[in-house]
Write a protein that binds this DNA or RNA. Structure first.
Lengths: 291, 291
DNA sequence: CTGTTAGCGCGTTCAC
DNA sequence: GTGAACGCGCTAACAG
Protein backbone atom coordinates (compact mmCIF):
# COMPACT_ATOMS: atom_id res chain seq x y z
CA UNK A 1 0.00 0.00 0.00
CA UNK A 2 1.48 3.22 -1.22
CA UNK A 3 -0.27 5.35 1.35
CA UNK A 4 1.33 3.45 4.18
CA UNK A 5 4.88 4.35 3.20
CA UNK A 6 3.97 7.92 2.25
CA UNK A 7 2.48 8.45 5.67
CA UNK A 8 5.31 6.57 7.31
CA UNK A 9 2.97 4.10 8.96
CA UNK A 10 2.11 0.46 8.55
CA UNK A 11 -0.47 -0.96 6.17
CA UNK A 12 -2.73 -2.02 8.98
CA UNK A 13 -2.91 1.50 10.36
CA UNK A 14 -4.15 2.73 7.02
CA UNK A 15 -6.60 -0.12 6.99
CA UNK A 16 -7.86 0.87 10.42
CA UNK A 17 -8.35 4.47 9.35
CA UNK A 18 -10.27 3.30 6.31
CA UNK A 19 -12.53 1.17 8.44
CA UNK A 20 -13.06 3.70 11.19
CA UNK A 21 -11.38 1.50 13.73
CA UNK A 22 -11.11 3.46 16.96
CA UNK A 23 -7.76 2.03 17.89
CA UNK A 24 -5.80 4.76 16.13
CA UNK A 25 -4.33 7.87 17.68
CA UNK A 26 -6.10 10.99 16.48
CA UNK A 27 -3.00 12.58 15.02
CA UNK A 28 -2.06 9.43 13.20
CA UNK A 29 -5.55 9.22 11.81
CA UNK A 30 -5.45 12.84 10.66
CA UNK A 31 -2.08 12.33 9.04
CA UNK A 32 -3.19 9.24 7.17
CA UNK A 33 -6.41 10.87 6.08
CA UNK A 34 -4.61 13.88 4.69
CA UNK A 35 -2.26 11.67 2.71
CA UNK A 36 -5.23 9.70 1.43
CA UNK A 37 -7.04 12.87 0.40
CA UNK A 38 -3.93 14.29 -1.25
CA UNK A 39 -3.47 11.27 -3.43
CA UNK A 40 -7.15 10.73 -4.13
CA UNK A 41 -6.68 7.21 -2.91
CA UNK A 42 -9.62 4.88 -2.53
CA UNK A 43 -9.49 1.24 -1.54
CA UNK A 44 -10.09 -1.41 -4.16
CA UNK A 45 -13.45 -3.11 -3.86
CA UNK A 46 -11.99 -6.15 -5.57
CA UNK A 47 -9.39 -6.62 -2.90
CA UNK A 48 -11.85 -5.86 -0.15
CA UNK A 49 -14.48 -8.27 -1.28
CA UNK A 50 -11.91 -10.94 -1.93
CA UNK A 51 -10.59 -10.68 1.57
CA UNK A 52 -13.81 -9.92 3.40
CA UNK A 53 -15.85 -12.52 1.57
CA UNK A 54 -18.53 -10.05 0.84
CA UNK A 55 -18.91 -7.31 -1.70
CA UNK A 56 -21.64 -5.03 -0.43
CA UNK A 57 -23.08 -5.41 -3.91
CA UNK A 58 -26.66 -6.36 -4.65
CA UNK A 59 -27.82 -7.38 -8.09
CA UNK A 60 -31.09 -5.88 -9.29
CA UNK A 61 -32.48 -7.64 -12.32
CA UNK A 62 -35.38 -5.86 -13.95
CA UNK A 63 -37.33 -7.16 -16.90
CA UNK A 64 -37.18 -3.95 -18.86
CA UNK A 65 -35.23 -0.82 -18.12
CA UNK A 66 -38.02 1.27 -19.59
CA UNK A 67 -40.85 -0.23 -17.61
CA UNK A 68 -42.33 2.59 -15.57
CA UNK A 69 -43.74 0.22 -12.98
CA UNK A 70 -40.34 -1.36 -12.41
CA UNK A 71 -38.65 2.01 -12.41
CA UNK A 72 -40.76 3.17 -9.51
CA UNK A 73 -39.78 0.13 -7.51
CA UNK A 74 -36.12 0.29 -8.52
CA UNK A 75 -35.91 3.90 -7.54
CA UNK A 76 -37.02 3.03 -4.03
CA UNK A 77 -34.77 0.00 -3.87
CA UNK A 78 -31.72 2.00 -4.91
CA UNK A 79 -32.12 4.65 -2.27
CA UNK A 80 -32.67 2.00 0.37
CA UNK A 81 -29.56 0.15 -0.81
CA UNK A 82 -27.38 3.24 -0.93
CA UNK A 83 -28.56 4.23 2.51
CA UNK A 84 -27.28 0.89 3.79
CA UNK A 85 -23.95 1.36 2.06
CA UNK A 86 -24.62 -1.16 -0.65
CA UNK A 87 -23.94 -0.81 -4.33
CA UNK A 88 -26.44 -2.00 -6.88
CA UNK A 89 -25.78 -3.81 -10.12
CA UNK A 90 -28.76 -3.07 -12.33
CA UNK A 91 -29.34 -5.56 -15.12
CA UNK A 92 -32.05 -6.11 -17.69
CA UNK A 93 -33.50 -9.56 -18.29
CA UNK A 94 -35.64 -8.58 -21.27
CA UNK A 95 -37.86 -11.51 -20.32
CA UNK A 96 -35.07 -13.69 -21.64
CA UNK A 97 -34.30 -16.80 -19.60
CA UNK A 98 -30.81 -17.24 -21.00
CA UNK A 99 -29.85 -13.62 -20.58
CA UNK A 100 -31.11 -13.80 -17.01
CA UNK A 101 -28.96 -16.85 -16.39
CA UNK A 102 -25.93 -14.94 -17.62
CA UNK A 103 -26.73 -12.06 -15.34
CA UNK A 104 -27.02 -14.35 -12.36
CA UNK A 105 -23.73 -15.97 -13.29
CA UNK A 106 -22.05 -12.58 -13.43
CA UNK A 107 -23.45 -11.68 -10.04
CA UNK A 108 -22.11 -14.91 -8.66
CA UNK A 109 -18.68 -14.21 -10.08
CA UNK A 110 -18.74 -10.72 -8.66
CA UNK A 111 -19.50 -12.15 -5.24
CA UNK A 112 -22.77 -10.25 -5.07
CA UNK A 113 -24.22 -10.39 -1.57
CA UNK A 114 -27.74 -10.78 -2.84
CA UNK A 115 -30.18 -10.46 -5.70
CA UNK A 116 -33.44 -8.65 -6.21
CA UNK A 117 -35.13 -10.17 -9.20
CA UNK A 118 -38.21 -8.97 -11.03
CA UNK A 119 -39.77 -12.19 -12.18
CA UNK A 120 -41.56 -13.02 -15.39
CA UNK A 121 -43.55 -15.99 -16.50
CA UNK A 122 -40.86 -18.13 -18.09
CA UNK A 123 -38.37 -17.41 -15.36
CA UNK A 124 -37.50 -20.41 -13.26
CA UNK A 125 -36.77 -19.33 -9.73
CA UNK A 126 -34.50 -22.34 -9.37
CA UNK A 127 -31.91 -20.34 -11.29
CA UNK A 128 -31.47 -18.30 -8.17
CA UNK A 129 -30.30 -21.25 -6.12
CA UNK A 130 -26.73 -19.91 -5.84
CA UNK A 131 -28.30 -17.04 -3.92
CA UNK A 132 -30.63 -19.11 -1.83
CA UNK A 133 -31.45 -17.16 1.27
CA UNK A 134 -30.02 -14.00 -0.13
CA UNK A 135 -32.51 -13.03 -2.76
CA UNK A 136 -35.92 -11.54 -3.25
CA UNK A 137 -38.19 -12.17 -6.18
CA UNK A 138 -40.49 -9.36 -7.14
CA UNK A 139 -43.88 -9.66 -8.77
CA UNK A 140 -43.95 -13.44 -8.60
CA UNK A 141 -45.41 -15.88 -6.18
CA UNK A 142 -43.04 -18.55 -5.02
CA UNK A 143 -42.56 -20.29 -1.75
CA UNK A 144 -38.98 -21.17 -2.33
CA UNK A 145 -37.66 -17.64 -2.08
CA UNK A 146 -38.67 -14.48 -0.38
CA UNK A 147 -41.01 -12.79 -2.74
CA UNK A 148 -42.70 -9.46 -3.09
CA UNK A 149 -45.80 -9.95 -5.09
CA UNK A 150 -47.92 -7.15 -6.30
CA UNK A 151 -51.50 -7.37 -5.28
CA UNK A 152 -52.76 -8.09 -8.78
CA UNK A 153 -56.10 -9.36 -7.65
CA UNK A 154 -56.63 -6.40 -5.36
CA UNK A 155 -55.65 -3.87 -8.00
CA UNK A 156 -58.36 -5.00 -10.39
CA UNK A 157 -60.81 -5.35 -7.56
CA UNK A 158 -60.03 -1.81 -6.49
CA UNK A 159 -60.79 -0.47 -9.95
CA UNK A 160 -63.96 -2.50 -10.26
CA UNK A 161 -65.15 -1.40 -6.85
CA UNK A 162 -64.47 2.19 -7.77
CA UNK A 163 -66.50 2.08 -10.95
CA UNK A 164 -69.18 -0.06 -9.41
CA UNK A 165 -69.46 2.48 -6.63
CA UNK A 166 -70.15 5.15 -9.21
CA UNK A 167 -73.13 3.15 -10.27
CA UNK A 168 -71.60 1.59 -13.38
CA UNK A 169 -72.94 -1.83 -14.28
CA UNK A 170 -71.35 -2.29 -17.70
CA UNK A 171 -67.63 -2.55 -17.21
CA UNK A 172 -65.43 -4.22 -19.82
CA UNK A 173 -61.97 -5.66 -19.29
CA UNK A 174 -58.91 -5.50 -21.53
CA UNK A 175 -56.30 -8.00 -20.46
CA UNK A 176 -53.19 -9.83 -21.55
CA UNK A 177 -52.65 -13.52 -22.11
CA UNK A 178 -53.34 -15.75 -19.09
CA UNK A 179 -50.06 -17.48 -19.86
CA UNK A 180 -48.63 -14.58 -17.93
CA UNK A 181 -49.72 -15.68 -14.49
CA UNK A 182 -49.68 -12.43 -12.59
CA UNK A 183 -50.42 -9.71 -15.11
CA UNK A 184 -52.57 -12.04 -17.19
CA UNK A 185 -54.41 -14.73 -15.30
CA UNK A 186 -54.74 -13.29 -11.80
CA UNK A 187 -56.03 -9.94 -13.02
CA UNK A 188 -58.47 -11.52 -15.42
CA UNK A 189 -59.74 -13.92 -12.78
CA UNK A 190 -60.20 -11.04 -10.42
CA UNK A 191 -62.35 -9.28 -13.01
CA UNK A 192 -64.43 -12.35 -13.72
CA UNK A 193 -64.87 -13.03 -10.04
CA UNK A 194 -66.03 -9.50 -9.38
CA UNK A 195 -68.51 -9.71 -12.23
CA UNK A 196 -69.91 -12.94 -10.91
CA UNK A 197 -70.28 -11.82 -7.34
CA UNK A 198 -71.86 -8.54 -8.38
CA UNK A 199 -74.06 -10.02 -11.05
CA UNK A 200 -72.42 -8.16 -13.93
CA UNK A 201 -72.10 -9.51 -17.45
CA UNK A 202 -68.40 -9.82 -18.22
CA UNK A 203 -67.18 -8.35 -21.47
CA UNK A 204 -63.52 -8.97 -21.95
CA UNK A 205 -60.77 -9.72 -24.40
CA UNK A 206 -57.05 -10.30 -24.58
CA UNK A 207 -54.48 -8.11 -26.34
CA UNK A 208 -50.76 -8.21 -26.89
CA UNK A 209 -48.68 -5.98 -24.66
CA UNK A 210 -48.50 -3.23 -27.26
CA UNK A 211 -50.24 -0.01 -28.01
CA UNK A 212 -51.41 -1.07 -31.44
CA UNK A 213 -52.84 -4.34 -30.23
CA UNK A 214 -54.67 -2.67 -27.38
CA UNK A 215 -56.04 -0.10 -29.76
CA UNK A 216 -57.48 -2.72 -32.05
CA UNK A 217 -58.84 -5.06 -29.43
CA UNK A 218 -60.65 -2.24 -27.66
CA UNK A 219 -63.41 -2.25 -30.29
CA UNK A 220 -64.49 -5.72 -29.27
CA UNK A 221 -65.19 -4.48 -25.76
CA UNK A 222 -67.41 -1.56 -26.60
CA UNK A 223 -71.16 -1.82 -26.48
CA UNK A 224 -73.57 1.10 -26.57
CA UNK A 225 -74.15 0.63 -22.87
CA UNK A 226 -70.50 0.32 -21.88
CA UNK A 227 -69.54 2.72 -19.11
CA UNK A 228 -65.97 1.83 -18.28
CA UNK A 229 -63.02 -0.24 -19.45
CA UNK A 230 -60.63 -1.70 -16.94
CA UNK A 231 -57.20 -2.53 -18.37
CA UNK A 232 -54.52 -4.90 -17.15
CA UNK A 233 -51.83 -2.24 -17.58
CA UNK A 234 -51.43 1.45 -18.19
CA UNK A 235 -50.04 0.81 -21.64
CA UNK A 236 -53.25 -0.94 -22.60
CA UNK A 237 -55.22 1.80 -20.88
CA UNK A 238 -53.48 4.38 -23.03
CA UNK A 239 -54.27 2.39 -26.13
CA UNK A 240 -57.90 2.00 -25.11
CA UNK A 241 -58.15 5.67 -24.26
CA UNK A 242 -56.92 6.62 -27.68
CA UNK A 243 -59.35 4.30 -29.41
CA UNK A 244 -62.25 5.55 -27.35
CA UNK A 245 -61.31 9.09 -28.21
CA UNK A 246 -61.14 8.28 -31.90
CA UNK A 247 -64.59 6.73 -31.94
CA UNK A 248 -66.04 9.55 -29.91
CA UNK A 249 -66.75 7.55 -26.78
CA UNK A 250 -65.06 9.88 -24.30
CA UNK A 251 -67.97 9.17 -22.00
CA UNK A 252 -66.41 5.82 -21.21
CA UNK A 253 -64.12 5.84 -18.19
CA UNK A 254 -60.79 4.02 -18.16
CA UNK A 255 -59.02 2.12 -15.43
CA UNK A 256 -55.35 1.24 -15.55
CA UNK A 257 -52.73 -0.35 -13.34
CA UNK A 258 -49.30 1.15 -12.79
CA UNK A 259 -49.99 4.81 -12.12
CA UNK A 260 -48.24 6.02 -15.27
CA UNK A 261 -48.28 9.79 -15.25
CA UNK A 262 -49.02 10.09 -18.95
CA UNK A 263 -52.25 8.14 -18.69
CA UNK A 264 -54.00 10.56 -16.43
CA UNK A 265 -52.48 13.54 -18.18
CA UNK A 266 -53.67 12.57 -21.62
CA UNK A 267 -56.93 10.96 -20.63
CA UNK A 268 -58.26 12.67 -17.51
CA UNK A 269 -61.28 10.38 -17.54
CA UNK A 270 -58.96 7.60 -16.48
CA UNK A 271 -57.80 6.40 -13.11
CA UNK A 272 -54.85 4.18 -12.40
CA UNK A 273 -54.00 2.27 -9.27
CA UNK A 274 -50.46 2.11 -8.05
CA UNK A 275 -49.18 -1.40 -7.52
CA UNK A 276 -46.19 -0.08 -5.63
CA UNK A 277 -48.29 1.02 -2.69
CA UNK A 278 -49.89 -2.33 -2.25
CA UNK A 279 -47.32 -5.05 -2.04
CA UNK A 280 -47.40 -8.34 -0.26
CA UNK A 281 -44.15 -9.48 1.17
CA UNK A 282 -43.64 -13.15 1.94
CA UNK A 283 -42.01 -14.16 4.15
CA UNK A 284 -41.00 -11.20 6.34
CA UNK A 285 -37.68 -9.67 5.43
CA UNK A 286 -35.63 -6.82 6.69
CA UNK A 287 -38.07 -4.09 5.93
CA UNK A 288 -37.49 -1.70 3.13
CA UNK A 289 -39.67 1.10 1.99
CA UNK A 290 -40.22 2.34 -1.53
CA UNK A 291 -40.01 5.89 -0.27
CA UNK B 1 -8.11 -23.41 -6.06
CA UNK B 2 -10.24 -26.34 -5.11
CA UNK B 3 -10.74 -27.51 -8.67
CA UNK B 4 -7.03 -27.98 -9.13
CA UNK B 5 -6.71 -30.61 -6.44
CA UNK B 6 -9.99 -32.29 -7.31
CA UNK B 7 -8.82 -32.71 -10.86
CA UNK B 8 -5.34 -33.61 -9.73
CA UNK B 9 -3.69 -30.85 -11.74
CA UNK B 10 -1.99 -27.56 -11.02
CA UNK B 11 -3.70 -24.26 -10.51
CA UNK B 12 -2.29 -22.80 -13.68
CA UNK B 13 -3.71 -25.61 -15.76
CA UNK B 14 -7.15 -24.78 -14.46
CA UNK B 15 -6.46 -21.16 -15.21
CA UNK B 16 -5.44 -22.03 -18.75
CA UNK B 17 -8.61 -24.01 -19.31
CA UNK B 18 -10.64 -21.11 -18.02
CA UNK B 19 -8.91 -18.73 -20.38
CA UNK B 20 -9.03 -20.98 -23.42
CA UNK B 21 -5.30 -21.23 -23.55
CA UNK B 22 -4.44 -23.73 -26.27
CA UNK B 23 -1.46 -25.12 -24.44
CA UNK B 24 -3.47 -27.82 -22.69
CA UNK B 25 -3.86 -31.43 -23.74
CA UNK B 26 -7.39 -32.15 -24.85
CA UNK B 27 -7.98 -34.87 -22.29
CA UNK B 28 -6.69 -32.70 -19.48
CA UNK B 29 -8.95 -29.91 -20.63
CA UNK B 30 -11.95 -32.23 -20.73
CA UNK B 31 -11.16 -33.55 -17.29
CA UNK B 32 -10.83 -30.11 -15.78
CA UNK B 33 -13.96 -28.89 -17.50
CA UNK B 34 -15.99 -31.77 -16.19
CA UNK B 35 -14.81 -31.12 -12.66
CA UNK B 36 -15.64 -27.44 -13.09
CA UNK B 37 -19.08 -28.27 -14.39
CA UNK B 38 -19.74 -30.77 -11.63
CA UNK B 39 -18.96 -28.25 -8.94
CA UNK B 40 -20.67 -25.33 -10.62
CA UNK B 41 -17.43 -23.47 -10.24
CA UNK B 42 -16.90 -20.07 -11.74
CA UNK B 43 -13.86 -17.88 -11.28
CA UNK B 44 -14.06 -14.84 -9.05
CA UNK B 45 -14.13 -11.56 -10.92
CA UNK B 46 -12.67 -9.84 -7.90
CA UNK B 47 -9.58 -11.97 -7.95
CA UNK B 48 -9.33 -11.74 -11.71
CA UNK B 49 -9.56 -8.00 -11.89
CA UNK B 50 -7.19 -7.62 -8.99
CA UNK B 51 -4.59 -9.73 -10.68
CA UNK B 52 -5.19 -8.78 -14.28
CA UNK B 53 -5.47 -5.08 -13.58
CA UNK B 54 -8.66 -4.85 -15.48
CA UNK B 55 -12.20 -5.71 -14.72
CA UNK B 56 -14.01 -5.91 -18.04
CA UNK B 57 -16.53 -3.65 -16.39
CA UNK B 58 -17.82 -0.43 -17.90
CA UNK B 59 -19.83 2.09 -15.92
CA UNK B 60 -22.86 3.53 -17.62
CA UNK B 61 -24.22 6.58 -15.84
CA UNK B 62 -27.57 7.74 -17.12
CA UNK B 63 -29.39 10.81 -15.90
CA UNK B 64 -32.70 9.08 -15.39
CA UNK B 65 -33.50 5.39 -15.60
CA UNK B 66 -36.92 6.23 -16.99
CA UNK B 67 -35.77 8.52 -19.76
CA UNK B 68 -36.88 6.94 -22.99
CA UNK B 69 -34.23 8.71 -25.01
CA UNK B 70 -31.49 7.41 -22.75
CA UNK B 71 -33.01 3.96 -22.66
CA UNK B 72 -32.75 3.67 -26.40
CA UNK B 73 -29.09 4.52 -26.26
CA UNK B 74 -28.40 2.32 -23.24
CA UNK B 75 -30.05 -0.63 -24.86
CA UNK B 76 -27.67 -0.35 -27.79
CA UNK B 77 -24.70 0.24 -25.55
CA UNK B 78 -25.48 -2.84 -23.47
CA UNK B 79 -25.65 -5.22 -26.37
CA UNK B 80 -22.44 -3.80 -27.78
CA UNK B 81 -20.77 -4.20 -24.41
CA UNK B 82 -21.99 -7.75 -23.85
CA UNK B 83 -20.91 -8.70 -27.34
CA UNK B 84 -17.39 -7.61 -26.41
CA UNK B 85 -17.47 -9.59 -23.18
CA UNK B 86 -17.84 -6.57 -20.95
CA UNK B 87 -20.17 -6.16 -18.03
CA UNK B 88 -22.02 -2.93 -17.48
CA UNK B 89 -22.65 -1.14 -14.24
CA UNK B 90 -25.73 0.98 -14.81
CA UNK B 91 -26.15 3.92 -12.48
CA UNK B 92 -28.50 6.86 -12.26
CA UNK B 93 -27.20 10.38 -11.72
CA UNK B 94 -30.61 12.00 -11.29
CA UNK B 95 -28.96 15.19 -12.52
CA UNK B 96 -27.28 15.29 -9.14
CA UNK B 97 -23.63 16.32 -9.13
CA UNK B 98 -22.86 14.77 -5.77
CA UNK B 99 -24.57 11.49 -6.54
CA UNK B 100 -22.67 11.36 -9.80
CA UNK B 101 -19.43 11.90 -7.94
CA UNK B 102 -20.26 8.96 -5.70
CA UNK B 103 -20.99 6.79 -8.69
CA UNK B 104 -17.69 7.68 -10.29
CA UNK B 105 -15.94 6.93 -7.02
CA UNK B 106 -17.57 3.52 -6.87
CA UNK B 107 -16.53 2.79 -10.43
CA UNK B 108 -12.99 3.76 -9.57
CA UNK B 109 -13.00 1.44 -6.58
CA UNK B 110 -14.39 -1.36 -8.69
CA UNK B 111 -11.55 -0.90 -11.15
CA UNK B 112 -13.99 -0.13 -13.94
CA UNK B 113 -12.23 -0.14 -17.29
CA UNK B 114 -14.18 2.81 -18.55
CA UNK B 115 -17.20 5.04 -18.19
CA UNK B 116 -20.00 6.05 -20.48
CA UNK B 117 -21.60 9.12 -19.00
CA UNK B 118 -24.77 10.86 -20.05
CA UNK B 119 -24.02 14.47 -19.27
CA UNK B 120 -26.23 17.18 -17.92
CA UNK B 121 -25.79 20.90 -17.50
CA UNK B 122 -24.33 21.09 -14.04
CA UNK B 123 -22.08 18.13 -14.57
CA UNK B 124 -18.43 19.02 -14.58
CA UNK B 125 -16.59 16.71 -16.93
CA UNK B 126 -13.50 17.19 -14.79
CA UNK B 127 -15.01 14.68 -12.38
CA UNK B 128 -14.17 12.04 -14.92
CA UNK B 129 -10.45 12.71 -14.72
CA UNK B 130 -9.75 9.34 -13.03
CA UNK B 131 -11.02 7.82 -16.25
CA UNK B 132 -9.22 10.15 -18.59
CA UNK B 133 -8.83 8.43 -21.90
CA UNK B 134 -11.24 5.69 -20.94
CA UNK B 135 -14.56 7.45 -20.98
CA UNK B 136 -17.18 8.80 -23.29
CA UNK B 137 -19.53 11.62 -22.50
CA UNK B 138 -22.90 11.47 -24.15
CA UNK B 139 -25.08 14.40 -25.09
CA UNK B 140 -22.53 17.00 -24.11
CA UNK B 141 -19.92 18.92 -26.01
CA UNK B 142 -16.50 18.87 -24.49
CA UNK B 143 -13.07 18.78 -25.96
CA UNK B 144 -11.46 17.19 -22.95
CA UNK B 145 -13.08 13.79 -23.35
CA UNK B 146 -14.45 11.76 -26.16
CA UNK B 147 -17.99 12.85 -26.53
CA UNK B 148 -21.05 11.77 -28.39
CA UNK B 149 -23.19 14.80 -28.83
CA UNK B 150 -26.64 14.64 -30.19
CA UNK B 151 -27.21 16.90 -33.14
CA UNK B 152 -29.45 19.30 -31.25
CA UNK B 153 -29.17 22.03 -33.81
CA UNK B 154 -29.88 19.67 -36.65
CA UNK B 155 -32.87 18.11 -34.93
CA UNK B 156 -34.71 21.40 -34.64
CA UNK B 157 -33.61 22.40 -38.11
CA UNK B 158 -34.96 19.12 -39.42
CA UNK B 159 -38.35 19.75 -37.87
CA UNK B 160 -38.44 23.35 -39.09
CA UNK B 161 -37.44 22.34 -42.58
CA UNK B 162 -40.15 19.70 -42.58
CA UNK B 163 -42.91 22.11 -41.63
CA UNK B 164 -41.54 24.88 -43.79
CA UNK B 165 -41.55 22.47 -46.69
CA UNK B 166 -45.24 21.90 -46.13
CA UNK B 167 -45.77 25.58 -46.67
CA UNK B 168 -46.12 26.57 -43.04
CA UNK B 169 -44.95 30.10 -42.20
CA UNK B 170 -46.22 30.37 -38.65
CA UNK B 171 -44.29 27.95 -36.52
CA UNK B 172 -44.00 28.44 -32.78
CA UNK B 173 -41.36 26.97 -30.49
CA UNK B 174 -41.70 25.53 -27.01
CA UNK B 175 -38.34 25.17 -25.33
CA UNK B 176 -36.62 24.71 -22.01
CA UNK B 177 -34.33 27.06 -20.15
CA UNK B 178 -31.19 28.11 -22.06
CA UNK B 179 -29.27 27.34 -18.90
CA UNK B 180 -29.40 23.84 -20.22
CA UNK B 181 -26.89 24.26 -22.99
CA UNK B 182 -27.81 21.42 -25.29
CA UNK B 183 -31.52 20.83 -24.82
CA UNK B 184 -32.16 24.48 -24.02
CA UNK B 185 -29.88 26.96 -25.71
CA UNK B 186 -28.71 25.11 -28.81
CA UNK B 187 -32.21 24.04 -29.81
CA UNK B 188 -33.65 27.48 -29.19
CA UNK B 189 -30.85 29.14 -31.13
CA UNK B 190 -31.44 26.75 -33.97
CA UNK B 191 -35.08 27.76 -34.05
CA UNK B 192 -34.31 31.46 -33.96
CA UNK B 193 -31.70 31.09 -36.63
CA UNK B 194 -34.06 29.23 -38.90
CA UNK B 195 -36.71 31.90 -38.43
CA UNK B 196 -34.28 34.64 -39.27
CA UNK B 197 -32.88 33.02 -42.36
CA UNK B 198 -36.33 32.13 -43.65
CA UNK B 199 -37.90 35.42 -42.74
CA UNK B 200 -40.34 33.96 -40.22
CA UNK B 201 -41.58 35.75 -37.12
CA UNK B 202 -40.41 33.74 -34.11
CA UNK B 203 -43.00 32.92 -31.48
CA UNK B 204 -41.45 31.06 -28.61
CA UNK B 205 -41.46 30.53 -24.89
CA UNK B 206 -39.75 28.51 -22.19
CA UNK B 207 -41.32 25.84 -19.99
CA UNK B 208 -40.14 23.62 -17.18
CA UNK B 209 -39.40 20.03 -18.09
CA UNK B 210 -42.80 18.81 -16.96
CA UNK B 211 -46.10 18.00 -18.54
CA UNK B 212 -48.04 20.55 -16.54
CA UNK B 213 -45.66 23.36 -17.31
CA UNK B 214 -45.66 22.57 -21.01
CA UNK B 215 -49.41 22.42 -20.99
CA UNK B 216 -49.71 25.86 -19.48
CA UNK B 217 -47.03 27.58 -21.51
CA UNK B 218 -48.47 26.31 -24.77
CA UNK B 219 -51.20 28.93 -24.70
CA UNK B 220 -48.69 31.72 -25.04
CA UNK B 221 -47.53 30.25 -28.34
CA UNK B 222 -50.84 29.99 -30.07
CA UNK B 223 -52.05 32.63 -32.51
CA UNK B 224 -54.98 32.24 -34.85
CA UNK B 225 -52.54 31.84 -37.70
CA UNK B 226 -50.27 29.31 -35.94
CA UNK B 227 -49.72 26.18 -38.03
CA UNK B 228 -47.22 24.18 -36.04
CA UNK B 229 -45.45 24.01 -32.69
CA UNK B 230 -41.94 22.65 -32.48
CA UNK B 231 -40.98 21.39 -29.03
CA UNK B 232 -37.59 20.86 -27.43
CA UNK B 233 -38.57 17.41 -26.23
CA UNK B 234 -41.24 14.79 -26.64
CA UNK B 235 -42.48 15.37 -23.12
CA UNK B 236 -43.20 18.97 -23.99
CA UNK B 237 -44.69 17.87 -27.29
CA UNK B 238 -47.09 15.60 -25.44
CA UNK B 239 -48.05 18.44 -23.16
CA UNK B 240 -48.57 20.80 -26.08
CA UNK B 241 -50.55 18.19 -27.97
CA UNK B 242 -52.87 17.76 -25.06
CA UNK B 243 -53.40 21.49 -24.68
CA UNK B 244 -54.04 21.93 -28.40
CA UNK B 245 -56.55 19.13 -28.27
CA UNK B 246 -58.32 20.69 -25.32
CA UNK B 247 -58.66 24.06 -27.02
CA UNK B 248 -59.79 22.46 -30.25
CA UNK B 249 -56.74 23.37 -32.28
CA UNK B 250 -56.02 19.91 -33.67
CA UNK B 251 -55.22 21.61 -36.95
CA UNK B 252 -51.90 22.62 -35.45
CA UNK B 253 -49.08 20.19 -36.12
CA UNK B 254 -46.57 19.21 -33.47
CA UNK B 255 -42.87 18.51 -33.69
CA UNK B 256 -40.94 16.72 -30.96
CA UNK B 257 -37.47 15.41 -30.36
CA UNK B 258 -36.76 11.94 -29.00
CA UNK B 259 -39.00 9.68 -31.01
CA UNK B 260 -41.14 8.66 -28.06
CA UNK B 261 -43.64 6.07 -29.25
CA UNK B 262 -46.49 7.49 -27.20
CA UNK B 263 -46.30 10.89 -28.86
CA UNK B 264 -47.11 9.68 -32.33
CA UNK B 265 -49.61 7.18 -31.00
CA UNK B 266 -51.66 9.69 -29.05
CA UNK B 267 -51.22 12.64 -31.37
CA UNK B 268 -50.89 11.41 -34.93
CA UNK B 269 -50.60 14.98 -36.16
CA UNK B 270 -47.14 15.04 -34.58
CA UNK B 271 -43.75 14.06 -35.84
CA UNK B 272 -40.68 13.41 -33.78
CA UNK B 273 -37.08 13.21 -34.86
CA UNK B 274 -34.81 10.59 -33.40
CA UNK B 275 -31.65 11.97 -31.90
CA UNK B 276 -30.20 8.51 -31.72
CA UNK B 277 -29.85 8.24 -35.47
CA UNK B 278 -27.99 11.46 -35.78
CA UNK B 279 -25.06 11.53 -33.45
CA UNK B 280 -21.77 13.27 -33.75
CA UNK B 281 -18.83 11.46 -32.30
CA UNK B 282 -15.72 13.40 -31.36
CA UNK B 283 -13.04 12.32 -31.59
CA UNK B 284 -13.22 8.97 -33.38
CA UNK B 285 -13.50 5.99 -31.08
CA UNK B 286 -13.78 2.31 -31.51
CA UNK B 287 -17.03 2.26 -33.35
CA UNK B 288 -20.15 1.03 -31.73
CA UNK B 289 -23.60 0.88 -33.15
CA UNK B 290 -26.87 1.47 -31.38
CA UNK B 291 -28.33 -1.48 -33.20
C1' DC C 1 2.28 -29.59 -22.29
C1' DT C 2 2.28 -28.87 -17.11
C1' DG C 3 3.54 -27.66 -12.15
C1' DT C 4 5.69 -24.17 -9.13
C1' DT C 5 6.36 -19.50 -7.61
C1' DA C 6 5.37 -14.76 -6.84
C1' DG C 7 2.62 -11.24 -6.05
C1' DC C 8 -2.08 -8.10 -7.16
C1' DG C 9 -4.33 -4.73 -2.53
C1' DC C 10 -6.52 -5.45 1.15
C1' DG C 11 -8.12 -7.15 6.20
C1' DT C 12 -6.70 -9.87 9.96
C1' DT C 13 -4.27 -12.02 13.05
C1' DC C 14 -0.34 -11.60 16.21
C1' DA C 15 3.45 -9.65 18.23
C1' DC C 16 5.62 -5.45 19.94
C1' DG D 1 -1.45 2.16 19.48
C1' DT D 2 1.12 0.21 15.95
C1' DG D 3 3.71 -2.69 12.42
C1' DA D 4 5.00 -7.24 10.22
C1' DA D 5 3.39 -11.27 8.29
C1' DC D 6 -0.01 -14.11 6.11
C1' DG D 7 -3.58 -15.41 2.73
C1' DC D 8 -8.04 -14.41 -0.07
C1' DG D 9 -8.36 -16.54 -5.80
C1' DC D 10 -6.25 -15.70 -9.52
C1' DT D 11 -2.68 -15.03 -13.57
C1' DA D 12 2.01 -14.34 -15.38
C1' DA D 13 6.72 -15.85 -15.55
C1' DC D 14 9.54 -19.35 -15.22
C1' DA D 15 11.08 -24.13 -14.89
C1' DG D 16 10.71 -28.37 -16.11
Amino acid sequence: MDIAKLAGVGKSTVSRVLNNDHRVKDETRALVQSVIAQHGFSPSKSAQSMRARRSRLIGVIVARLDSSAENVAVSGILSALYAQGYDAAIMESQFDVDLTAEHIEVLKRRNADGVIMFGFSEFDVAQLSPFEGRCVVMAVDTDRFSSVSYDNWGAVEQLMTHFHGEGFRHISYLGVTPKDLTTGKVRLDSYLSFCESHDLTPVCNIAEVSLDSGYQVTDSLIRPETQAVVCASDTLALAAGKRLQDIGRTDIRIGGIGNHQLLRFVFPQSISVDLATDKQVTPPLNSYSTK
